[in-house]
Amino acid sequence: MTQTPAPQRQGGNRAAGLLAALFGGGSATVFALLVVIFAVIAVVNPGFMEPPSLMAFIKNAAPLVILAVGQYFVIVAGELDLSVGSLVGAQVVIAAALIDGEESRTVPVMLLMLAFGIVVGLVNGLITTLLKVHSLITTLGMMLVLYGAIRLWTGGSPTGALSEGFRQAGRGGIEMSVVRLLPWALFILVAVVIAAVVLMRSPYGRTLIAAGDNEKAAAFSGVRVWQVRTAAFVLSSVLASLAGVLIGGYAGVTAQVGDGLEFTAITAVVLGGVVLGGGRGTVVAAMAGALTVEALFTLFNQLSLPSTIRPAVQGVIIIAAVAYAARERSRPAVPATDARPDETTGS
């Protein structure tokens, strides 16, 4: 509780609050890293800084940023969601099978996907909170169930096709002169960002952080911790479904489309200085983490780094960035009296 994230401050000096949000709580690293990576990209390929390619970058990055926002809600509440990757895959396959190329079915199927996302989130949340199963196990089980169920249903390979209207969200946009194409994904992304920031400033957002920081204290203050956490899981699943719509439109229909996304999203959130275990970090920093990961992938492309060596570079950068942020965090902000167990075990 020693580091009050900016969203908890009301009114007053907004600029100071924003600065604290950007540079407090170990988040400075991610913004510095983001700036450095973009600077290197700009040097390597000045053309990248032209509006059209920046728009293309945002279109690419939007799904991961949205997934990171969802993962942030769950992580800040003290849990984890490993099921988002397979949920993305499941949603894409469901959409393709049910729409089957028919334009008229687009909206009903999207509503069905939303309902499916809510159900998955509810099941994750209720098993974790009411049956008291650790979220790593709950969502790992959900990952296996979704993975198997989708392949069982489609017999191994996805069937059907997406409608043109469905694909617009992921690949379309408004034709314009300067940026050539203003992608719909940008509008969706901006809407998600605004909604997430507003949500984290609302009573719900504060309760979520309180529940993640100290569950006992939150419960004593009258918070229904299980409801708050279940809602976080639902948010995560719904946002994963939204990311599924974007990815499906952008990348096409395969069941493998979501594989490994859960770890990338968790990495992005942690890179943003959000502490696994809950209670610390801001949603803006989590999104910056996602942008950093995407920028890193872009940089690999620009440098035409052999694809085989990329995971290694990624691993080194992740560990180094988190280690640097941990060093920063343990220095000024946490007084000795606040030595919490999870700090010492290396959160």
């Binding site: 696994l276 691993g315 992740i318 560990i319 988190v322 060093r327 290396g346 959160s347």
Partner: peptide
Amino acid sequence: KVNPFITTLG
């Protein structure tokens, strides 16, 4: 002091 999840994933 890097979280074990991130350390071993990296």
